[in-house]
Nucleic acid binder design. Sequence first.
DNA 1: CACCAGGACGGGA
DNA 2: TCCCGTCATGGT
Length: 299
Amino acid sequence: MKDSGFELPLPHPFDFQLCLNYMARSPFECLYTTDTLGVNRLVKVGVAKRLIRVTCPHGRMMQVQLLQGVSLAKEELEELTRYIRNWFDLDRDLEPFIQMSEGDPLLGQLIESFSGLRIVGIPDLFEALCWAIVGQQVNLTFAYKLKQRLTEHYGDAAEWEGVVYRMFPSPEQFASVSIESLLSLQLTRNKAMTILDVASRMTSGELSRERLLKLSDSESIDKELTKIRGIGPWTAQYVRMRCLGDQTALPIGDVGLQNAVKKMLGLNQKPTPSELRALFEQWPGWESYVTFYLWRTLY
DNA sequence: CACCAGGACGGGA
DNA sequence: TCCCGTCATGGT
């Protein structure tokens, strides 16, 4: 059967290979598979699960294939397109960012290495929140394992050409999950309670991506998120950065960010939060991109 | 065994 | 408001 799908024009600059490199950074990633040419992933479109493959043949257009050969209704097509745009941050104009790097040693170095890398997003709010929560104060290797366990225990899956593709579980799928079962997956009690609380709030509709985006300013969003026990400033910033498309998000307490700055500037010790704030005042409006690029220098 | 990891919370200045 | 100890759990 001939593959169905569609193409999206690419913004400039855009480097798909750098995005792929980022996505391929952990062997424990369970929500998509990458190869030299692209990424495969199971996504929910409307009520259906669709297996897609994203590539950029010749680097000219982004090609989105529906691997199971289904064709999409108009609304589904629009929803999937939105998802892809959020995933690869296609609507961002990076030219001002590039221009800002001129005469800036640190930023210049980052652009030199990563120009065209877009913030690879997590369009699904629940997935983004849970990923941040499991990633609190643990090394990334373990965070990936926790995400994998949650996904394999509670998420949906589909098989294609002998490979199993999985989706992160929905909030509804946590409705009947107990704290104890999460503890058995090596989550701490606090993380388990926070995830169930978030799932409940999202199931009821009290918490949603749309609602957060409607809030006028970033501080309201932070307040809305950090009122949930177990979600602190780092998690709120992280979610604004990876899910809500907020360029100004700055996870100031992030140990990876601190280590990256220490490494880039050749410091003897990690910068303090106030030193980080002062440093980032050079890049107003681009805090999240600088953060994302700095993270890339660590691996 | 010690120290670290893409933190959060609560108490006390 | 800021600072600091504590908690929690696997990695290295």
